[in-house]
Design a protein around this nucleic acid. Structure first.
Lengths: 211, 211
DNA sequence: AAATAATGAATGAACGTTCATTCTACACGG
DNA sequence: CCGTGTAGAATGAACGTTCATTCATTATTT
């Protein structure tokens, strides 16, 4: 991102930590004010540094945006395994839903997710980054569905797996939207709405969750 | 919206058409540049009027945003009936999906939808408007599911109807996200992913859509 | 002539970005 | 162990734009 070349590894490590500090601040600002609404001055102030210093670590505001998006996509990809890992998939999804509603810091932020998605229709660069990441997530999910039950998967035939992975992608993205548009919606009600579908698709064995 | 009082009905009619002309232009700009990215100068130019004149019809840019959101919500509510009306619900949904992908003018725009949803987490006013509208849409949908088959409904028991309406709301919102994030995704593939769920929930009688 | 509609230049604030300057930490000759 | 040189880190004021908004002025309608 930054054109600067660091000499010593120690300096490079510090530079990296500075970059992360800026990204943390930028993410907070972008969530609170939107991509275009947050100014460089606010980002710098939030990071506890001067405005000018920001440009030592990033070439432009747009570079920060792209870095935030890349980081968010990577985080989402990393966290998809948490969903597949557990033994109660529905419960795991509902837990995420509650976190999205609360705007919890350790989850992909719903507003940021929505703004990224909207921005994809304006910037081909962002669209491509999102598309690649989504394809990876979808593939990982599909892999989980196909993998043998003995290997922690669900042992579905290939066709079913790909169809259901796509369906689940839509459903989860829909839940993010819902969390943003109705932060007080009862998560249990969502659970009751999802349960029959999850059962039919084989994600949840009937009785795992209370009826 | 505007503080101005019109004297004659004729003048009022013209003022109304001017307001709509401004809203049309603003909507186009907001879609192309985002809420914060589009400036008043661009909006006025797109509407074919001067910058200053805009303020005769709207108090502020934020007032235009709110009007656009209100209008979008109203349009969405009006179009929900198209979905319920037809005899092939799945096909109707897929048609909408294709329109979202293409950014067709006669449908709620996906990017605008996403930006509105993101903005809801920042403005209580927008959140409330969205919540109220969503509740209406959900209620209408639920009503369709509960209504007797003889009256064009699906004749579901109350509990089922409310659960399935919520599920469908999530699913459809998820499809909007997907359309924005993958404008080239094959709509038929989406159809194959949705079909089994729609069948199970009773939205589509098996065989209505090609297998 | 009176009232309304429309203009577009003016306004001050805020924007992203740059840059001359200062600060800080560490290397090295003494 | 001490100045002292030096390079990188950090500053914050300044730059040119652009922003939303206002207003004195002109055009159009009634």
């Amino acid at each position: 991102m930054s054109a600067l070349q660091r000499r010593t590894p120690k300096a490079e490590a510090r530079a990296e930590s500075q970059r992360e500090r800026i990204l943390d601040a930028a993410q907070k600002c972008f969530i609170e004010q939107g991509f275009q609404g947050a100014g460089m001055a606010l980002i710098a102030e939030t990071a506890g540094i001067s405005t000018g210093l920001t440009y030592r670590y990033f070439d432009s505001k747009s570079a920060i945006m792209l870095a935030i998006i890349a980081r968010e996509l990577e985080g989402k990809r990393a966290r998809i395994e948490e969903l597949c890992g557990g033994d109660d998939f529905l419960a795991a999804v509902l837990e995420k839903f509650r976190a999205w509603q609360a705007g919890s810091a350790d989850v992909m932020n719903a507003a940021l997710f929505l703004e990224m998605s909207a921005e994809a229709s304006r910037s081909p660069e962002i669209l491509e980054a999102i598309r690649k990441s989504d394809a990876l997530v979808l593939g990982e999910f599909e892999g989980w569905l196909r993998r043998d039950r003995s290997a922690g998967g669900l042992g579905m035939p290939a066709g079913d797996a790909s169809r259901r992975a796509l369906l689940m992608q839509c459903l989860i993205e829909g839940l993010v939207v819902r969390a943003a548009r109705d932060p007080d919606l009862d998560a249990d009600a969502v659970g009751r709405a999802l349960a029959p579908v999850f059962e039919q698709l084989g994600f949840t064995t009937p009785g795992t969750t209370r009826p």
